[in-house]
């Protein structure tokens, strides 16, 4: 699998979330994702970027376009926040902590082809999603 392009975008403020959406949209369009798939991956990116900002205390997103076996877009969100103590619970639909902003990760997972999560309490969270063409 070859990485065609890669860039890292900071996620430390609300306008950064808007920029994340725009760059993911542009990249998804470039590799020729259908309009529905573009919409899904941009929406997933928006959800995860907001989580990174609100729950992770800010972080970054790595945006990669991939080639092989198919074209795809891969997004890696990482933060050095408090981490997620119970990942199974966080993946459940409708799960949210105090502020009530999240929908849970379950919905976001449905919008992409691959979803991986690593989290260590007290150290941070990394979520990797991929949408293939």
């Amino acid at each position: 699998m070859a990485v065609i392009s890669s860039e890292t975008i900071p996620v430390t403020s609300e306008p950064d979330i808007v920029f994340v959406r725009r760059r993911v949209r542009e990249t998804a369009a470039q590799i020729g994702l259908s309009l529905v798939d573009q919409t899904k991956v941009v929406t997933a990116a928006s959800e995860l970027a907001r989580n990174t900002l609100i729950y992770g205390g800010g972080g970054a997103m790595q945006l990669e376009s991939l080639n092989g076996p198919r074209l795809g877009v891969r997004l890696t969100f990482s933060d050095n926040g408090p981490g997620i103590p119970d990942i199974q619970l966080a993946l459940r639909d409708g799960f949210t902590t105090g502020s009530g902003l999240g929908l849970g990760l379950g919905g976001t997972k449905r919008l992409v082809n691959e979803f991986a999560i690593e989290s260590k309490v007290g150290q941070g969270t990394k979520i990797i999603i991929t949408r293939w063409k």
Binding site: L35, V36, Q38, T39, K40, T43, E47, D93, G94, L103, G104, G106, G107, T108, R110, L111
Partner: peptide, 14 residues
């Protein structure tokens, strides 16, 4: 609402 947005929203669970 655009059709692609409607599809995505429902899949997201909203």
């Amino acid at each position: 609402m655009r059709p692609a947005v409607a599809i995505t929203l429902v899949e997201l669970g909203m």
